[in-house]
């Protein structure tokens, strides 16, 4: 029996299904990725697992205990890191952790030991007296991680933890997550930065319009994506610009044989139907359109390609 089991979970708002028949499971020591476009139902699923919302049907179990039937018992064993930091004004790092430690029922020497432990683990010990509001985004995210670790949970639910972090903070945060998995924690993580997620997760589920469209280990998903691409005769193309160019999306969409465009800013992904000669024509066309191009590659091996292959970019 896996530590976390989500079984035919559905969440309905009136006639609208935010999540529909979602089923997946993962065990201790594993990092499970949860991928999907905005509005796909990732956060809703995570919030139900974190006991913050109820489900319309189905069940979720943590170590065999139903999240819907026994939310109080489950709350003691989970740590939820939402997509916001949740810091307080006029509160130092130590006071913040002290408050949440007390809220988790810790007192006296045990509380002090746990606070010291998480501050050391997250690298916040040098900032113990600094106001939480004055911390950088990366440090706030570490503080939030420290908050959920105070309870020593079995399951960590991390909703877009890398969003808004600079590259160094992302890498450092990723390393912390890996260490936690090595220590036996089960981790459910959602992210938009799929290249990073592919280096981190052991398995993942891709959700679109509330339904799981593909799930498995990263290797299984890659194989499935290759099959899908062969079937649809498309190639995933990744484009990198040296600066943000507002007209990029329009230029890319107008290109022949380009069926989908995702991404934004300096990084884009395309679904391209064509052979190598077609790719060369596409590259020439983009250069002629004066896009500030510094990267152009067709890649068939990472999670981003899998995501491109199995989702349709539909929002609900």
């Amino acid at each position: 029996m896996a530590l976390v089991e989500i079984d035919n979970l559905s969440k309905r708002f009136g006639d609208f299904y935010a999540v529909r028949d979602v089923t997946f499971s993962f065990d201790r020591g594993s990092i499970y990725g949860f991928i999907g476009p905005n509005g796909a139902g990732k956060t809703t699923t995570m919030r139900i697992l974190a006991t913050l919302e109820t489900a319309s049907s189905g069940d979720l179990r943590l170590d065999g205990v139903s999240v819907l039937d026994y939310p109080d018992r489950v709350r003691e064993r989970i740590g939820f890191l939402p997509d916001y930091y949740g810091t307080y004004a006029n509160t130092s790092v130590r006071d913040y952790l002290d408050f949440f430690g007390r809220a988790y029922g810790l007192r006296g020497a045990e509380l002090a030991r746990r606070i010291d432990g998480v501050m050391e683990f997250t690298g916040l010990d040098a900032l113990a007296e600094k106001a939480t509001a004055a911390l950088s985004k990366g440090m706030k995210q570490r503080l939030a991680l420290g908050r959920v670790l105070l309870n020593d949970p079995d399951l960590l639910i991390l909703d877009e933890p890398a969003a808004g972090l600079d590259p160094r903070a992302r890498v450092e945060f990723r390393e912390l997550v890996k260490v936690l998995a090595e220590r036996g924690k089960a981790i459910l993580i959602s992210s938009h930065i799929l290249t990073e997620l592919s280096e981190l997760v052991h398995g993942c589920a891709i959700i679109e319009r509330g339904r799981i469209v593909r799930q498995g280990t990263v290797a299984e998903l890659r194989a499935a994506a290759r099959e899908s691409r062969a079937e649809h005769e498309t190639t995933a193309v990744r484009i990198e610009l040296w600066r943000d160019e507002p007209a990029t999306e329009r230029v890319l969409t107008e290109q022949a044989n380009v069926s989908r465009v995702v991404g934004g800013g300096r990084h884009y992904g395309l679904a391209f139907a064509g052979d190598a000669e077609g790719l060369a024509r596409l590259l020439r066309s983009l250069v002629a359109a004066e896009l500030p191009l510094i990267g152009f590659s067709s890649d068939e091996g990472n999670l981003e390609d899998v995501f491109m292959a199995v989702t349709r970019g539909e929002v609900q």
């Binding site: 974190a50 006991t51 913050l52 709350r75 003691e76 989970i78 939820f80 939402p82 916001y84 949740g86 810091t87 307080y88 949440f100 809220a103 988790y104 029922g105 908050r147 309870n151």
Partner: peptide, 11 residues
């Protein structure tokens, strides 16, 4: 700031 729900999932 949604800090209230962070407190709610404590004990």
């Amino acid at each position: 700031d949604r800090t209230l729900e962070l407190v709610d999932i404590t004990r």
